[in-house]
Design a protein around this nucleic acid. Structure first.
Lengths: 223, 223
DNA sequence: TTGATTAATGTCACATTGTGACGATATTGT
DNA sequence: ACAATATCGTCACAATGTGACATTAATCAA
């Protein structure tokens, strides 16, 4: 789990979006309609570059789209807002986390289960680091992006809260599930921040450290 | 600390009227220039009413301003964004928290000090409850407001992180201060959520409960 | 009363974000 | 060639937010 999605390769034009109507007959090589002129991923990379060069606010969507040879209207068909372009795939990660939590053995206590799920979903490569850092820097310095982060984090927190609620028999919006969901995210974000500022070290190590911290009531590292 | 400011006194510059607009003592030699046509507080109350009635997005700033007999330009002179109108005074609360932390005896350990500071800054009256709930509901349901919350919370978190850094000799953006700042906010928000959903109970009680939770590594209430 | 000073407002023009409607274009299937 | 379909582009538009400049309403000094 990177919290700030590393996004894989995906340069090809994947087949997606099965229509609502017409049922789901799958046949080989059927790809109807005009092909997309660009991919969300390409727009993301362009955005990353332009935002880093000129700044988020100084980069208009029109410029961004033009760099991908599309119009701004096309951009807004793929992304609801300008900020959304940097949050590609985050929803997928949340879904991954939810699945990971669901597949942890019931024998394992709920907090260790959360720890295990978070660590299992955490996959990234060293090659992703520069991009991650660029995104990270933007998200932590541009107000509009910080704001957009809140919406994504909410979904992540709720995933944890739902799991805790399920395991403890409480409601999602009772004190314990709420607090655990939010503090767990808080810890992971802290780990992520520290890790991404370093030049070495495994994210997983920092995550464990942060989770130890909250599990022990900040007993660790308190020297 | 309410996290979602209850908007206390007027803080008007010398104007001490009881109304929202401030009463009219017209004599007395102070304050030059054209007097404000409205107050931030009045705009906030109007916004609260209109947002609740019509929804945040469906309410234009122009309507909002018109209800206070000013133009939208005046609104945007008092508030940077449309969402800001609901965050009156939050910055003041953060400042209060910072002062409270600074004035806690050095003999008290840093986590108890945080607890004490948070509780000491927490002041609200039963009369504020309806307004707090309306604001709360808006902030937790309208994406634009959720997003704006992130920016406010950041300042709050940093206040805690700075204090922990100061007390431990670490840097603000090292793991422990970061995680403590964020988890403390997470806990207080959880307490606030639960409290504002109830019809009875003291916020302070919930705050203590939530802080116990993180201090003990979720040992409390884990039955 | 008159005029200078001051602070806030109003007006106007404008860039940008984001959306709805509709027609144009490119690809696959018959 | 022709139909079906998915995406694109163009256009019109509402709303947020900002900069520049004029206007208004108050105090202070004469």
């Amino acid at each position: 789990m990177t919290l700030i999605n590393a996004a894989g390769g995906e340069k090809g034009r994947g087949v997606k979006g099965r229509g609502v109507k017409g049922g789901g007959v799958k046949r080989g090589g059927e790809r109807r309609g005009r092909p997309p002129a660009t991919t969300p991923r390409e727009l993301e990379l362009i955005a990353l570059r332009l935002f880093a060069e000129k700044g988020f606010d100084a980069t208009t969507v029109e410029e961004l789209a033009a760099a991908a040879n599309v119009t701004s209207r096309t951009f807004f068909r793929k992304f609801t807002t300008k900020a959304d372009v940097l949050w590609q795939g985050f929803d997928d990660e949340v879904a991954e986390l939810r699945e990971a939590l669901a597949s942890v053995s019931e024998d394992i206590d709920w907090f260790p289960a959360i720890r295990q799920a978070i660590l299992s979903v955490n996959h990234y490569t060293a090659a992703d680091l520069p991009e991650l850092r660029t995104r990270m820097h933007l998200i932590s310095t541009v107000p509009a992006l910080q704001a957009s982060a809140a919406l994504r984090y909410d979904a992540w927190e709720r995933t944890i809260s739902d799991f805790v609620a399920h395991r403890t028999g409480l409601e999602t919006n009772e004190m314990l599930p709420l607090v655990v969901g939010r503090t767990t995210l808080a810890a992971c974000r802290g780990a992520y921040d520290v890790w991404s500022a370093q030049t070495v070290g495994e994210l997983a190590t920092y995550l464990e450290q942060a989770l130890d911290l909250i599990e022990s009531g900040f007993a660790e590292l308190t020297g």
